[in-house]
Design a protein around this nucleic acid. Structure first.
Lengths: 197, 197, 197, 197
DNA sequence: CATGAATGAGTCTTCATTCAT
DNA sequence: GATGAATGAAGACTCATTCAT
């Protein structure tokens, strides 16, 4: 019974989360009403507030939970790859794969979550920083191993790589193309490795 | 007297526009009330609607008018520079300079304008495309002159460059640093030219 | 408890309906604010919208629900009367009695509901038609039985009778007299039966 | 110059009046904005207020001026007819003719002017009374001459006749038929003279 | 007289959130 | 935990009216 209850709870929580992603991605955060989400999740309006403090916190939860699974997913896999370049490429692929496999979630990430300076500063800044540090590490490894230029500013490069991934993702979301997003990984990789010359 | 009147009219429109930029950047688009803008612009609420159809259109106007002066500004200057690399660098500098000279406008551009997929698709997409085509041209010139690799996908590169500029700008806006944004231009230039190797 | 709850719900709806009738009749439809109605019904503004889609729909609801009880009320009673003239007289009396027993509702019916061609065409036309057909039937019965002239256009007569009732009702509403409205029934009856000659 | 100016004034006043009739009849009184009327009359918004105190007064003016020409029109003609029945018939015909010749004005009269108890009580009551007295006179003449029953309540009959005319008019306005409204006169006449028996 | 830009009070409606059941 | 009816604050937008020119 405990288990059943627990499952039931998780189930509801998850249903709400998923309904929110769907709603936010199709109607936008501000146009989405709690009622819409509740109805789609087949719970009462009030139930949403048993699991999430507010609409804003619901968006934050989508970010945090997706981010968590996002970060966990690749870690082991990435560490298994010895070669730095390959490791970096894998990182890019995983990023794009993760985003590319759920267009609705991607829309929320690439568009709806940018809706206010407040949200970006308070909610996502720390997580983003951690994520960037993961990339930075690989850059440093590359510098150490002589694969990458020693004079690279690894933090700047990490941000740059993120920028390229982010742009690709946003572009994919807005363009509504069916192309697989992760295919962009090699192009980006090539560009950042060789530059324009 | 004619002139004065005309100036006064423009003045009101401009005052509203500026008040909106200030308000949107500090409180966010959705938290800003028309009353806030009107009060700051020292006009009546209804006056806002003499110049702009709706709050949403006011945001669009900020985009369009800033974009226009943004695009006009550099064009001649850029064309005067012969060397492609220098021309590209100037482009980057102008972009960052333009954004970096008005933090409030920058905040609106980098954050508030991204608030909805709808806005990004409908309002800014065409202009952005045109802007990217400007960058693309320079890339092509570089390829033609042999300065840049012949196998570069100039459209992809243009988007990548924009991504880097955009990331730098957003970062600058959110970090609240006093550093001049345009100083990033050389770093970005170096990165895209030489790559990581 | 179930019952109490159910009653309470009905109660709220009814309270709003009654408050609306009072408000519309004393201030007119357009001058009445939802807040006025809500306050009088002792509910929150928003509650009005749980029961009615809009202010306009609230007026329509007053019409529909009053019309329903209005139509139901007399039907049996009327059918029990054999004599056509008496039946017609009863019809007139019921009409005027119904309207005459609630001056506020009457005001809404006779004045506020005529506020727009749109309302009259869309909302009340069908119901009115049905009502007129009820009168028409009696006329036909009178013709069949030889009590009324065979050359009467029963539809025209029905409309004429309605016109006289309607005029009496409006007159009563506007004159603010205390006379019982239904007393007009016999005068009208005499007039339509005998004519002026 | 006096004349020209005067004509010009009248012209503007009339243009506004006509524009108002058109607008009120098609959009309803409350949905019509002064701006709509001004634009249609090709004058500035403010000009409307040089000729009419308020939107409400503009409606009242339509009533009064139409009523005046309405009342004047038939008087002589009516008095020339000796026979009471014919005189009454002419009255009915003139009423319906007057209304039937301008559907837009008719709509304003039959629908828009009924929009509030206030308007009906304050603005139109006195004029209506005078109009009814005109009818009443004819009834009295009929009674005196023995053409009509001596026991008729002439005031009641006058109101009844008006009711039938009014109903016919409203019906015509709402039904959007092309039939000539004045053709109803004889039917009504027959009905009120002979009654139903 | 005429203009029409400017005003700002006014209101319907929405919707996140609460809480009695 | 779950419900969903009720709340009521909030705000975009309208438009009759004014008044400086």
């Amino acid at each position: 019974m405990d288990t059943a209850e627990c499952v039931d709870l998780n189930n509801k929580r998850e249903r709400i989360l998923n309904a929110a992603i769907k709603a936010f991605s199709s109607q936008g955060f501000y146009r989405t009403r709690i009622t819409d989400i509740a109805r789609a999740a087949k719970v009462a309006d009030g139930t949403v507030y048993l699991y999430f403090e507010s609409k804003e916190q619901l968006l934050a939860a989508i970010f945090n939970e997706s981010m968590k699974s996002f970060m966990d997913m690749g870690r082991k896999e990435v560490l298994e790859v010895e070669d730095v370049e390959e490791r970096l490429l894998l990182l890019l692929k995983l990023h794009l794969e993760n985003i590319g496999k759920d267009r609705e979630l991607a829309t929320v990430f690439q568009v709806e979550m940018r809706h206010s300076a407040h949200f970006m500063k308070e909610t996502s800044r720390a997580e983003l920083r951690e994520y960037l540090m993961g990339i930075q590490q690989v850059i440093e490894q590359g510098k150490d191993s002589g694969k990458f230029r020693a004079d690279l500013d690894s933090w700047f490069v990490a941000k740059s790589i993120f920028a390229l991934l982010d742009e690709a993702a946003t572009n994919w979301v807005l363009s509504e193309t069916d192309d697989a997003l992760e295919d962009e990984a090699t192009r980006i990789m090539d560009f950042i490795l060789r530059g324009m010359k």
